[in-house]
Each structure stands twice: as structure tokens, then as C-alpha cells.
Amino acid sequence: MSGAQQVTSAGHRDAMLARPAMKFERLVPWALVAPALVIALVFFGLPILNTLRMSFNLHVDQRVYVPGFTLDQYWMLVKNPIFSGSILTTVKLSLICAFSAVTIGYGFALLVWIGPPLWRVGFIGLALCPLLISEISIIFGWWMFFPKTGLLSHTLLSAGLIEDRFSLMYTEFAALVGLTYLTLPFSFFIILSILDGIDKRLLEASSDLGAGPLTTFREVMLPLTWPGMLVAFAHAFIWAMGTYATPSALGPDTLWTIGFLVQEQMLGRHNWPMASALAIVLVVGVASIMLLMRRLMARGGRFHD
């Protein structure tokens, strides 16, 4: 009984110390969550607030920044066609990218969902690839595929489909191909997870009632999967908004996205207030997309109930 005896004596001591122990107990969760909270507050909250403040500072005499308060940067964002144009370009590019990512991702997920289980593993592995490879490696891959000396031109020429070598490099199309590549896995996995939650017998039920494949898709699949599509779209959009390397490396020189300008202003021109203002625009854009998505999802939830 030695073990039991020990418990008894230890327990007795603790019973007398019950009060301080209770107080200590209340601190335990805070202590556990502290590392994560400190990282989030100090290295995320603080820099974001600091960036917001920086965006109101002055930029004069080629100095990095001069403390003060001005709305010049934000006024420039509206007035200067370079900046306002970049905002429009970014939104347009991200919209097209999100649209194609969701379209391809949906089709592929549907294929994986109804296909034989053996294919499933292979296709999921395939979809994981873009996630596991660095953005920069992917850029480089396309960078070797699209130009005049690249694989695309060479293949088409050897096949006799074209007369002369050609280049798709530095076009908006190339930028879009690269961006969609990056966002495709997200939409694929989001939509696949939604599909996996659907009972496949619904398809049979629908066909029993005399619906063709397209009718079934419109009447059964679409209503069940649109929240997933919405989430996938928002994810792709947010991700595309934030990337700057892919569009700037694959797209034309005139394709300036917000991300590219942040980097350009910060590292190239040493204009911190302007870079900060652009970053804030990016944050506000991402945040409003997320809020909008939540609103739409909430409405959808009501519909489903």
C-alpha cells in the first residue's frame, strides 16, 4: 500500500493549500496560450499598427520617412494612375485567377470524387505538388516553358503545328497560368472536402427521378456545394491578391500589382510611407473579402435551415 499511502499524505498537504492553488490554476491557461499570443500580438499586431501609422508619415527629400501626419499617400493612391491602376489590375487579375482556380478545381474534385478509389490517391498526390513546391521554383518552371526558346514553342514546332518559334512569356496569360497554378490546390481540396460530405446515392436518387447529368448537377450538386465554392473562391482571391512575384516575373512589365509596388516602394525607392499605405490597402482588401464571405455564408446557412 505504499503508493496509496503516499497519495494520502501528499493530498492532505494540498488540501490545506487549496486556496493559493486555485489562484494559480486560473493562470495556467494564460501561461499556456502566452507564446502564441505573444507572437500574434508583438510580431503581428504591433507591426500592422505601426504600418498603419507609417502610412500617414511624410516622405520628403528622398529620406525614408519623416514623422508627421498627412493623407498624401492615400490621396496619391486615388490620383496617381500608376497606383490606382495597380489596384484595379490586382483586383481584376485576382478575380480571373480565382474564377479559373475554382472552375478547374471543381471539375477535378468532381472527377476524383466519383472516380475509382485507386485514382483518388494519385490525383490527391498530384494536387499536393503545387503546395509543396516553392512559388519561386514554379515561376522558374513556367519561365522555361513559355519563351521562344522554351519547351512549349519547341514542342509545337517539332509537331509541325507552327511555322516559327513564338513566345508567351511576359504576357498576362502567363501570369494567370502561374497564379492559377498556385491557388488551384486550395480550391481543389476545399471543394473535395465538401463533396466527400455528400452522399453519392443522391446522384442515383436524382437519376431515378429522371434527371440527366446536367440537370442533376444544376439541381442537386450546385446547391449543395456552393458554400464550398464560395470559400474556395475567397481563398484563391485572397491568395492571388497577396502574391507579387508570380505576376511580376511572368507577366508584362506593365503588370503592376499592389504587392509588386509594396516591394518596389520599400526596397527600390525607400519610400516607407507609400509602401505602408499600399500594404494597408492590401490588408483592408483581404479583410473585406473575408467579412463579405462570412455574410454570404451566414445567409446561405439560413437558407439551408
Binding site: L37, A40, I48, N50
Partner: peptide
């Protein structure tokens, strides 16, 4: 159970949805 659990949750998750340029710039400046 933590007070302000939802706020802490959002605070921890938010950086994941913030573009890398913004985070890089923010930390570099701050």
C-alpha cells in the same frame, strides 16, 4: 475556458490570412 476566447482565436488565426508582403514589410519597419 478563457475570457475573450473568440478574440484570441481571431488574433492567432489572422496572420495566416495576411499577405506575406504585408507581414515582411511590417516586421522590417517595426
Amino acid at each position: 475556458n478563457l475570457p475573450l476566447k473568440n478574440v484570441i482565436y481571431v488574433l492567432i488565426m489572422l496572420p495566416l490570412f495576411t499577405p506575406g508582403v504585408v507581414l515582411g514589410l511590417g516586421i522590417a519597419i517595426a
